[in-house]
Computed example of a mutant assay.
Amino acid sequence: MRSAAVSALAVVVAAPCQAQAGDILTLRGEWTQFFSAAVAGSGDDAPRYGGRIDGFAVVDGERAGLWTGVSFHLHGEFVYGKNTNRVGSFLLLPVNTALNFPQSNTEAADTSYSIVQTIGKARIQAGKINLLEQSSAIPIVGGGGKEGFQHIGLASPPALLASPKVYGAIVSAPLGRLRLGLGVWTPDDWTQRYLPENLFRNGVNAMLVATLPAKIGGQQGFHTLSFFVTSRQSRVGESFPDLRPPPGLEGVPSPSAGGLHVKYTVQQFLWRDPADAARGLGLFGHFGASQGTPDILDWSMTAGIAGSVPLAARPRDKFGIGYFRFSTSPRVDGALADVFPIRDEQGAELYYTAQIGKRLRLTANAQLADPLLESAPVAAYAGLRAKADF
């Protein structure tokens, strides 16, 4: 079961992908390449190259002769090459989100598919849903590792109660000033799985999200309270694609079935270009706490500033500075105290993205990571990312 790449804010705030007026079929693609290396730490410091290709298709069911408000969404992805996720130090969290899924350091492909039905202002999505891709649409801090921040602690902070690919449904609708989201899905990881079989044999996952738009000093902000619950029982030492658990957790007793993760998220713009709503700069942050299964995360937080460069000469450039902290549960800390003493894993990331032409963005990225294991060295990473849209 992969950790939560769920972006609650994106689920209830971001506009759904829609075909353009008059189009039955809309196609688009992305090619993202990474060249990076561990520049401080231990182990292999050789430069590494990898990439991913994403293809998207949307069929407007109404224009195809079906009923009003229905559309069909397909997302194919392919990763290749090598990345720096497991070099430099013994880190719990991957430093390159985009190249960690569907599999890390190998060639791998996967496809997500769903049907979307809009009824008035309500939106219903059902099928195999890519939660990491939905997180790309978060205001200020979004990008899913292909844009903005690359480290998963900032790009999509793990909650460990959802996989990157889930089979289920998500509903969002306005209620007064609030935007509410409700999701129900199988707790199993649906990566590289396609047929809807044995969906809830290991329990059920659910989320409830409430987002309140609010202005401070005339600038737009979003405040989100999220609840994620599971009825599944997961072992403390179970493998998660988001994480690299330290050795020695296999013998730790499993918690009772059921778990809860509560998260508060804020996105607050400090500046918006009055002539271009797509340009803006703001603060972001979150605090989340967990209880019960899988009993490895205690709490996590992020804080930073990101968005458009406020320079008229570079209107499409972006930058970000962020800090994250991930704290393991007291049960895990105690189990490893005599063998592998651990501490909170924390780090920082800085990036600058330059727009080159209409379809190419080049990003310089630097990261510093203080690892979970007390005996492991601090690691630093530097790299370039090129993303082309077509």
Rank of each mutant, 00 (worst) to 15 (best):
G148W: 01
T118N: 14
G143F: 00
N130T: 07
P158M: 13
T111N: 10
S114L: 07
A155P: 02
G144Q: 05
N105Q: 14
N105C: 11
G153A: 07
G153M: 02
Q103G: 09
L132K: 09
E147V: 08
Q125H: 04
T118K: 13
A108N: 03
A108F: 03
I119A: 07
T111Y: 13
P102K: 03
L132N: 10
S135K: 13
N105L: 09
D110A: 14
Q103V: 04
Q134D: 15
S135D: 13
H151N: 10
Q103H: 11
A159F: 06
L160W: 05
Q134M: 03
A137C: 06
I152H: 04
I124K: 03
G148K: 01
K146R: 15
L154Q: 12
S104F: 01
T111H: 12
L132G: 13
P157C: 05
R123M: 05
S135M: 11
Q125S: 12
L154K: 07
Q150C: 02
I140N: 14
S114P: 13
P102W: 00
E147D: 06
K128L: 09
P158N: 12
E133F: 06
L132T: 13
R123K: 05
G143V: 02
Q150K: 08
Q134F: 01
I138L: 14
N105Y: 09
Q125E: 14
Y113F: 15
P139S: 00
I115E: 15
A155S: 05
I140D: 14
G143H: 03
G143Y: 00
Q103N: 12
T106I: 03
A108Q: 04
G120C: 09
I152P: 00
F149G: 10
A159Q: 08
V141W: 11
G144F: 05
A155Q: 08
F149W: 07
T118I: 02
P158T: 01
G145S: 07
T118C: 05
A122R: 07
S114R: 10
G142D: 07
Y113R: 14
N130K: 01
E133Y: 08
L132E: 09
K146T: 05
I140V: 09
E147Y: 08
G127A: 06
G145T: 11
T118E: 14
L131K: 01
S156F: 02
E133N: 14
K128P: 11
S104M: 04
I124H: 06
I140P: 00
A122N: 02
P139G: 06
S112Q: 09
E107S: 08
S135C: 03
A108I: 00
L154C: 05
T111D: 15
I152S: 08
L154V: 08
S112A: 11
S112R: 00
E133T: 11
Q150E: 11
I124F: 11
